[in-house]
Every structure is written in C-alpha cells, then in structure tokens.
Nucleic acid binder design. Structure first.
Lengths: 98, 98
DNA sequence: GCTTCAGTTCGAGGGCTATCAAACAGTTCT
DNA sequence: AGAACTGTTTGATAGCCCTCGAACTGAAGC
C-alpha cells in the first residue's frame, strides 16, 4: 500500500461521500439534466432551508463535482463534467437517464 | 421525477454510501486485487475488531457489491464484478491500478 | 457431548452529519 | 448611504454511523 494509493483512495472516498446523500445526488442530477442550475431552483425544489442548500452545494464543490459561477447576487452551479467522466465513465449518462 | 427515478436514485445512494468509508473502499480494493479474500485476511489487515469487520462486509453485501461464500467455519468474499461494472464502468479497473 | 474456533448479532458509547435559525457579507436599487 | 435581496457562515441540536465487548450461532475436533 503506497502513499499514492492512500491519497487516491481518500479522494475517491470524498467523492463517494459527496454522492452518498439523496439530496446531493438529486442536485447533481438536476445539474446534469439542465447544464446549469441556479440556487433559487434548488430553494424551490427542495423542502430545505437556504443554509442547508448551501451546505450541500459546498460539499459537492469540495469534492470537485461542481463549480460555482456568480452573476450579481445570483449563484449558478455547473457540473465538472470532465472530472466526473474521468472518475466515473458513464455515470453522468446514467444519472441523466429518464 | 417519476417513481422509478426515486428507486434508482436510492439504489445509487446505497452504493455510494457503501463506498464512502475508507475501510470498505480498501476492502473492495483487496477483493478486486486478489479475486477472493478470506475474513481472516481482513482481520489481520485492519486494526479493527471482528464485529466491526463483519459490520463492513455486511454493508458491502447489502449494497450488492460483494457476495459471501462459506467453507466450513471460514468465510470468503468475492466481488460482484458484473453488477459493479454495469453500475460503474471502469471503476474496478481504477481501483486495481497500482 | 463438550470444547474450541470463526463470524454474526446485540447493546452501548463517541463522533460525525444533516438540519435549522440567526447573524453576516456582498450586490443591487433607490 | 441606506434598504432590500441572495446566499454563506456560525452555533446548536437530533439522529445516524463506526466502534467495541459481550453474548450468540454454527462448524470442527477431541
């Protein structure tokens, strides 16, 4: 078990942890389906407080699965498709299946 | 959001949850590397009690990632490669990279 | 049959996670 | 500058997850 193995494993575990919550999974699905999703859409779609929504987006961000764009007061989230596809080929396609 | 979507999402979340723990991730790596691993190997490899080892194998099993074989008093674990590959093409290969 | 051995299951404890409300920070509008 | 708006951060809480030791189950050996 080399050091690099441990690092790679940690990174994978971070990603899996990020996707081990139904809310975050659904968030990613929405993002993949629409390309880009505004924070307001999350607010109205999930029965959760703003702080909780922010908490989840932060975790997805930290895992490198999404990136954030700001436009004035509004925030938009997009998938980091390249990294996602590199880590899990076919997952994005699977999440966008009807 | 159809009912089938929710079911599929739940199943995915179960799988991601199973892999969101470093111990279970390493267990799966060991299994993929050797084809089959005995419980005793887990016991000597991880600094964890027998009950904890059993707890983790149970979760991997419930997620459909591994299957259990019994030979007398001994237990052996094998990966459900087909299902793993179907859900996450390339993941097994990634986990077996040196 | 009783003992030993290999794992599982059970009950309990400590730490982490998801959640909210309140306070904060950055933008926009007036 | 001040008020209104959008989302983040903080502090606190309830529930879940990982862990262990103890008790249990099933198989092998004496």
């Amino acid at each position: 078990m080399s050091e690099r193995d441990a690092v790679r494993r940690e990174r994978l575990v971070t990603i899996f942890s990020a996707l081990s919550d139904p809310t975050r999974m659904e968030m990613l699905e929405m993002i993949l389906a629409r390309g880009e999703v505004g924070c307001a859409e999350f607010d109205e779609h999930f029965p959760l407080s703003k702080s909780t929504i922010s908490y989840h987006t932060k975790i997805l961000n930290a895992a490198g699965l999404i990136e954030t764009r700001r436009e004035g007061r509004f925030f938009f989230y997009r998938a980091k498709l390249d990294e996602l596809e590199q880590q899990f080929p076919g997952l994005a396609a699977q999440l966008t299946e009807s």
